[in-house]
């Protein structure tokens, strides 16, 4: 017998085995899928939640509540910048729920029919954080230009866009050159809120503008100066079930938890504002 024919026979055997395996897999899948009735969809499986980085603490806490309420369910989070998450969703990531820190990214996904019925579930307002040594120097928004080194978000990221809007509004009440006076002190335009916060809490910058929820995580290393509400912009956080969610039942249950009194309580504790129930973006 030649080596070649042995080789070919072995190949046939392998091919037959692979085929059999495929058929078996299909069969199990078919029965399993038929067995998966909506009634027990909430008692097993994996819920994948994509959420803006600022939601990490609250969502992690709600996640363990959710797993306790639905034994057998595992909640997996992907926390990142909203733009990154949007890209991942657009490239077909298997996601059940998407919670965004920026209504614009959610709107874009809604236009592509990648999410269903977004709801605003939280608001986050920009505040000024001041380093320890500049605490006496900057006590109000009007005193912001007195800081020697200011760090802001880049205009491309949501916090930077809100900052530009509120500084423009402040021009009307605090003098036409207010924004220019602030920007003359800017030493860096950071790509995310945590970078702004890190630089102020390390004392490299004297002041920065971040979300209230982030400012709360820095503890005593920074002082928080509120921005007058008539000038401020509130960042709206929409949440939605993904159109191709592998686990739509669990996804809806998660959204319900976030909108429930318990969810709103956890959000409020972390510094988020919670909007009237049922507001749509």
């Amino acid at each position: 017998m030649t080596q070649c024919s042995v080789h070919r026979r072995r190949e046939h055997r392998v091919r037959r085995a692979v085929l059999a395996l495929c058929v078996a897999l299909l069969a199990t899948c078919a029965t399993a899928c038929r067995r998966k009735a909506p009634a027990d969809a909430l008692s097993h499986g994996r819920l994948v939640v994509f959420a803006a980085a600022s939601l990490r603490e609250v969502f992690t806490r709600l996640g363990s509540d959710f797993e306790q309420a639905h034994p057998g369910v595992e909640v997996t989070f992907n926390f990142a910048g909203t733009q990154e998450l949007r890209s991942q969703v657009e490239h077909g990531a298997a996601v059940d729920v998407f919670a965004s820190a920026d209504a614009r990214h959610m709107d874009a996904l809604l236009r592509d029919a990648r999410v269903l019925d977004p709801v605003i579930f939280a608001g986050n307002e920009p505040v000024i954080v001041v380093s320890r040594e500049a605490a006496q120097r900057v006590r109000t928004l009007a005193e912001l230009p007195a800081a020697e080194r200011i760090v802001l978000g880049a205009p491309e990221v949501p916090i930077g866009r809100y900052t530009v809007t509120l500084l423009d509004r402040a021009n009307r009440t605090l003098g036409a050159d207010f924004r220019a006076r602030v920007e003359a002190r800017v030493v860096s335009r950071e790509l995310n809120v945590r970078q702004v916060l890190a630089k102020v809490s390390l004392g490299e910058a004297q002041a920065g503008i971040v979300y209230r929820t982030d400012a709360l995580t820095a503890g005593a290393s920074v002082t928080v100066v509120a921005i007058p509400s008539e000038l401020n912009v509130v960042a709206e956080y929409p949440i939605a079930v993904a159109a191709g969610a592998p686990n739509p039942e669990l996804a809806r249950a998660w959204v319900a938890l976030v909108l429930s009194p318990a969810g709103r309580g956890a959000l409020a504790q972390a510094g988020f504002g919670t909007p009237r129930a049922g507001a749509s973006p």
Partner: peptide
Amino acid sequence: TLMFAGNLEGRTQTLPLAIYTAFESDS
């Protein structure tokens, strides 16, 4: 670079930082 030098056009914004900054508005 982002952590130590920050991100300011013409001063500390190198090409990778510019790429990431642009990515935030238009991938």
